[in-house]
Amino acid sequence: MFDTLSDRLSGVFTNLRGKGRLSDADIDATAREIRIALLEADVALPVVRQFIARIKERAGGAEVSKALNPAQQVIKIVNEELVAILGGETRRLQYAKQPPTVIMLAGLQGAGKTTLAGKLARWLRDQGHTPLLVACDLQRPNAVNQLQVVGERAGVQTYAPEPGNGVGDPVRVARDSIDFARRAQHDMVVVDTAGRLGIDAEMMQQAADIRAAVDPQEVLFVVDAMVGQDAVNTAQAFQDGVGFTGVVLTKLDGDARGGAALSVREVTGQPIMFASNGEKLEDFDVFHPDRMASRILGMGDMLTLIEQA
């Protein structure tokens, strides 16, 4: 699709081998290419700016190594920074001391929340848990049916006392679901909510009310990997409006570079915990920061070379 960062930098560095240190001009030229590559990967501008400043600082101080050419060396620095921001190690889910453990999902319309609810339920079930899905999207046409079907496929129970399509109070359903889960011995509860915009004050309040009603151990912000520059606004709005403890990136089975991962992580400081990579229930994985780093900048081959050097 776009040139990878490796392609871009190899052009900049053709004459540099053997220099002791990268000159300011080299670093500026490099920074320009990295900036373009990040923007083409949809990393949000304010995040690009901060990132470039950090790379310049590190590259300026770095001795040129014998084993790596300057392009490789910069890529190594860029990769290390990316992995560091994307999370270093993967965090595990937080569990309640007294079951049930509650996981609430929130995000923009169409991000992949309901599908993720099914994936999480199946994943938890495979680990010996007895999850309950809760249908709190009472707004979008047939969102309740969708969750029920997804629940059946995952082999778990769905709590859906209201028909939806505009009928029923999602906050009440959320509250009641906890009692229901206790009585029916579910040790995990996954709450699906309606898609909402960050600027929709009423809907954000509803999400905050649902959160208050279920007091979740985790609130997961579900975000589409194809999202562009709006990722920062939206992530910030959900952080302020509902608050979240972790992020899930969806639709990673496509060819979007997924710069949103970097934007959301950098702006909110919350870890990316899971990756959704398909429409089927098993298309789900814990998040791997290193894979995401090379995906964002298309550095796969280059990193292999660097590891061998």
Binding site: M226, G228, T234, G254, D255, A256, R257, G259
Partner: peptide, 11 residues
């Protein structure tokens, strides 16, 4: 096309 989509929209 979703307005939130970034550069992938072109592809």
């Amino acid at each position: 096309l979703d307005a939130t989509t970034g550069q992938n929209g072109l592809v």
